[in-house]
Design a protein around this nucleic acid. Structure first.
Length: 152
DNA sequence: GCCAACGTTGGC
DNA sequence: GCCAACGTTGGC
């Protein structure tokens, strides 16, 4: 069982939006970064745990927990010329971009801010706290996962 | 294959 | 809104 962190902008689609979806589940479309794509396509498995992280907002924070509800399948928004995330180089018979379905589990009892995470030596290896990090999907060591939950 | 230009991410 | 960091593009 792997552990992950996935970023989302609460102004676009936040943890509360996820919780209010049918089955509390949402296709995590729009990932257009190869490193993130490779993890989504090749490594994420059903029932893997996910931290939901709010980025690009007043207080960037880990806000909740989700699980992988469906393993990788082609991201249809890449095929739709009308869509914001359209990519003409992704072909139906050779999809370039993939997505998973993510299901809400629970919100944290308190949001844990990036600023707080940055101060923890236990998390120095976490990609999220490293300067210039732009990955929207990243693995989280089990030890770090447990440590972050202990801050709750 | 190099690298400058450009676009995007995302904290602050 | 600013800007550093980083990824992608495309000319050569």
């Amino acid at each position: 069982m792997k552990h992950w962190l996935m970023k989302t902008e609460p102004g676009e689609f936040g943890i509360d939006d996820l919780a209010s979806r049918p089955n509390q589940t949402e296709p995590w479309d729009g990932v257009r970064n190869y490193q993130a794509r490779n993890m989504i396509r090749d490594e994420m498995k059903t029932n893997d745990w996910v931290f939901i992280y709010h980025s690009n907002c007043e207080m960037p924070s880990i806000v909740g927990i989700a699980r992988i509800a469906r393993e990788a399948y082609p991201d249809p928004t890449a095929f739709d010329p009308q869509h914001k995330h359209f990519d003409s180089s992704s072909q139906l018979d050779n999809p370039r971009w993939y997505m998973v379905d993510v299901q809400f589990v629970r919100k944290l009892t308190r949001s844990i801010a990036l600023a707080e995470l940055k101060g923890k030596p236990e998390l120095s290896g976490l990609a999220l706290v490293r300067k210039g990090n732009r990955l929207s999907v990243m693995p989280v060591d089990e030890a770090m996962w447990d440590f972050i939950l202990s801050l709750e």
